[in-house]
Simulated scan of single mutants.
Amino acid sequence: MRGFMITSLKTLGILLVVLSLGACSRQQSIGGDSGAGTQRIYALTETEADAVAHGAIVSSFPGRQIETINGPVRGYSTYTRMVLDTFTQQVLIKPVTGRRADGTTVDGYTFEVSGSGTAGISGGIANANFGNTLQAAADSTGKAVEVVSVMPRAIAASRSGVGPEGSETARRLKALRDLFDQGLITAVEYDAKRREIIGSL
Rank of each mutant, 00 (worst) to 15 (best):
P95I: 03
I57V: 09
T47M: 09
R81E: 00
A154Q: 09
P72I: 06
G98V: 09
V150F: 05
S158F: 07
V73S: 02
Q65F: 13
D102A: 12
S160A: 13
R159I: 06
T88N: 11
F61V: 01
G124P: 12
K174W: 05
Q90F: 09
V148S: 15
G163S: 11
V147S: 11
L92P: 07
G131E: 07
R100L: 12
V106C: 07
L92K: 15
S160E: 15
S158Q: 14
E46V: 10
G166K: 02
S149R: 01
I155D: 14
G166M: 03
T141M: 05
S122Q: 09
G120C: 06
V148R: 15
V148M: 12
A154F: 01
I69E: 15
T118C: 06
T97I: 05
A157K: 10
E168N: 03
G108T: 04
V96D: 15
H54L: 09
M82V: 06
T118R: 09
D107V: 01
D107A: 04
Q90V: 05
V113Y: 05
S122C: 01
S116G: 15
F130T: 06
S59M: 12
V162M: 12
G103I: 03
S167Y: 10
S167A: 03
I121N: 15
A126K: 12
A157P: 10
G163R: 09
V58I: 08
R64Y: 14
T80M: 06
P72F: 09
V162T: 13
V91Y: 08
V52T: 01
A101P: 00
A154C: 08
I93F: 04
V96H: 03
R153S: 14
D102W: 02
A101H: 00
R64L: 11
D139H: 13
V91E: 05
G163A: 04
S60N: 13
E165A: 11
E48M: 08
G63A: 15
V52S: 13
R64Q: 12
